[in-house]
Nucleic acid binder design. Structure first.
Lengths: 133, 133
DNA sequence: TCTGCAAATGCAACAATGTTGCAAAAGAAT
DNA sequence: ATTCTTTTGCAACATTGTTGCATTTGCAGA
């Protein structure tokens, strides 16, 4: 799947900002922050354009957002494996690497009477394979 | 447990802001935001004072922070039931009520080779008992 | 109860992150 | 190539959180 195809598939205009962002997402195994994208992106874009591109790609469901506490916001491609209602992410507290974790196990947590669950976000914090002590 | 006792127990000065905040936390079954505290608190305090009080109470481990995406930050009392390494919270997407969920089940997720887990935060989104459809 | 010191507060300024309105530019269909 | 719609860049603004510093407060010891 190419950036161009992804955009066409979702009937989005093929602009250099969107295409560049998607190419980086496709090439990365980890989630990326706004700053990481900006550093790696050849063209220079306004912050507003970045935010609006994120919103467009989020709305289309091409990428999803991962918020770690208040510190950091990252984005990653939505893959078929990414479950609709159960997201698991890993955050390395040393290097801030953020990854989507694939899990086949359905996690069930008992909610109080009258509460209804739509989705579940799981954030695991720890150290990644490069930062292990 | 009273607000006064909590502060003394942690060797923190008993200021009216801290004591007022803790009284609200002790009286509430749900997590509270900065604004909710401010509205309910009798005295009027500077925003800086609020933030610094949060930091003090967080550092002491008396309260803990719950961040829902980027939208909202809430705080709740840390109870003995609140596990050190596994936190489960519920967020109602309609009324924004946020609750700590007690769970006895230890959740295990397989991480990639070389990854090490320190803690796990689980955020369940849905509708609460007042907002069920 | 008074005194002195360390800690907490309020204020101002600042930083980071995200949003909105609007004119100019670019994409895509004809 | 022309036209129309969408996207972009800019400026301004909003929200959230932090920092430095002078003033005030809490509290321990006399």
């Amino acid at each position: 799947m190419t950036a161009k195809q992804l955009l066409q598939q979702h009937k989005l205009k093929r602009t250099s900002c969107r295409e560049g962002m998607l190419e980086l997402f496709l090439a990365s195994k980890e989630a990326l922050s706004e700053n990481e994208l900006r550093e790696q992106l050849s063209g220079s874009y306004d912050r507003t354009t970045f935010y609006r591109s994120f919103i467009t790609l989020l709305d289309a469901g091409i990428i999803h957002k991962i918020v770690v506490d208040n510190i950091l916001t990252k984005y990653a491609l939505t893959t078929p494996m990414t479950r609709e209602h159960q997201h698991v992410h890993f955050f390395c507290t040393h290097c801030e690497t953020t990854k989507c974790i694939q899990t086949d196990v359905e996690i069930t947590i008992q909610l109080p009477e009258g509460f209804h669950q739509d989705s579940m976000d799981i954030l695991i914090k720890g150290s990644c394979n490069h930062c292990k002590q």
